[in-house]
Design a protein around this nucleic acid. Sequence first.
DNA 1: CTGAAAGCGCTAACAC
DNA 2: GTGTTAGCGCTTTCAG
Lengths: 334, 334
Amino acid sequence: MNRHRVRLIDVAEAAGVSRATASRVLSGSPRHVDPVLAERVWTVARRIGYRPHLSARALRTGQTGTIGIVVPTLANPYFVALAEAFASEARDLGADLLIADSRNDIESEMTHLRRLADGRVDAIAIVPVSYEDSGAALAEALDAVPIVQVDRRTRDGSTAAIVLDNVAGIRLLIDHLHSVGRERIAYVGAETASSSGAERLAAFGDLAGTGSPTTVVSEFSTSAGREAARHLLDSAADIDAIICGADVLAVGLHSTLQRSGVSLPGDIALVSFDDSELLELTDPPITSLSPPVGEIARRTTELLMGEGDDWREPSVERLEPGIVTRESTRQIDP
Amino acid sequence: MNRHRVRLIDVAEAAGVSRATASRVLSGSPRHVDPVLAERVWTVARRIGYRPHLSARALRTGQTGTIGIVVPTLANPYFVALAEAFASEARDLGADLLIADSRNDIESEMTHLRRLADGRVDAIAIVPVSYEDSGAALAEALDAVPIVQVDRRTRDGSTAAIVLDNVAGIRLLIDHLHSVGRERIAYVGAETASSSGAERLAAFGDLAGTGSPTTVVSEFSTSAGREAARHLLDSAADIDAIICGADVLAVGLHSTLQRSGVSLPGDIALVSFDDSELLELTDPPITSLSPPVGEIARRTTELLMGEGDDWREPSVERLEPGIVTRESTRQIDP
DNA sequence: CTGAAAGCGCTAACAC
DNA sequence: GTGTTAGCGCTTTCAG
């Protein structure tokens, strides 16, 4: 049953042509081959079920037809959305997407990066785990394969980075909150190990009034969100709105506020950042920035697959988010 | 900067040994080589930054050191959890995990399956999209690489399948609901395109009293859950408990019930199937079966990587779930 | 437009 | 215990 792989030479022989011709038809440049032969080769190939051996092809061409994406965790729906945007992009390019999950772990991230760079993929998009510590692994993988940083970046900007414009994002959220009559805004973010977290926090510090409270929890997770909510409740801060640095935080926070009898949006208006499906499930649904994941993926692959070495330019390209208003920021009649 | 790859021969030359010896040290059987030489090779390899070319190695050995997993969608946290369990399993085996997302699409599933089978991975674990229609693609990929079906299966059981024991699961949930005083139980599941969906529905039909209402929506998604809730509300069925066939359904359903003023667990007790993080976020948190994802992944890789052809046996192995009780099924004092 | 032949980087017989 | 050599399956010069 599991005889042996059908190889190119099997097709060639059955079609009465050389391997070279068969190869040209099946992969390379079918333009430069007699249409009659080409047709014959195709027919035979289909009949005997030929499938090219990808490792062999990769070895020969130096191209794998695969793009890799490394995300901090798939438990965060935002990174899943990002991965799917890249999958769609890859499909358009006739390539595959290989998804790797670092589990928020530098070690694991380095391992993935190394293995991907070992001839497994043609290019890598990575959401680095840590601003401070992800740089080393990146720098190492860099001379094997093009890499672009996505959504977050490392301190030593050794490659191009395509990120959300966090300052614009915070501004958009604050403006929106003001427009619905909120003035005493708090910010809840996670530990600033990631550049995006740090940028959002800093932007909030700059744009919100001085003395606006910020709460920094240890990780981007729903339980951290609940912890933040308890902290805010305990501190009895005088606020009427909260900006969350990530959906998972917002949902956890929402759940704890809700159970503590805080009325949303009556007492507190809530906004978040990633616009994942989670935000539509809460009661009330939560207003959010809508990050341009499609555009991020498109621009990143453009850089990655482009002819030049543009990805080597340690630039930071910031893409503009939109906003999706939901009930959590409904205007309250005085 | 991007000179050229450091190859095995570069290491060999720098260490003054043959490629064979270098290869033996760096990969094969370091046992059969002089420790002194071995040490030298390692040192040199590290110094000049040698990394084996994975495609070349795969071509030569016929082994990729990679396991592939194909899931219907990563938007469902249950499949993410499953994928992470496999990642952990792969890590233990010194292998990589390649995650592919079918987006609930037969076409896309087939494409992934094909490409994975084209020498990209050593084995495939797949959660088939459709009981009826996923079989063909499976059968095709089958003679290139070992495949085991996970969590769901296809009609023509052409490979082994490791699934949750859905009958035991439904029984566990019903028993639990009875134990907290609920007798009029409804079931909400998605279209039976998947074997697990169908099994759960059938088991409910068998085990719940006759006339127990069932609602079947078109897909496993939160919006489908909301739709189911509206349906139940409209039908004004006389029930005091609901079993949901998937967490995403439960969460959507919960959200709509909640907004319609139904009290949980007062009016209705709610239970679900996948025990994902989502269920802890709702108010009240939702009781759920806890599927043995770790065990599923372990058993599957065992079958896949084992010496024999055990995975070819079209058997169905059913693993026992546990249950995690939460507030949504709290006993109500009469 | 087609074929012969070289070789991508690596490992595994097979000799020594 | 180590080196020599033959290929894994494919694409791509280079001749014709």
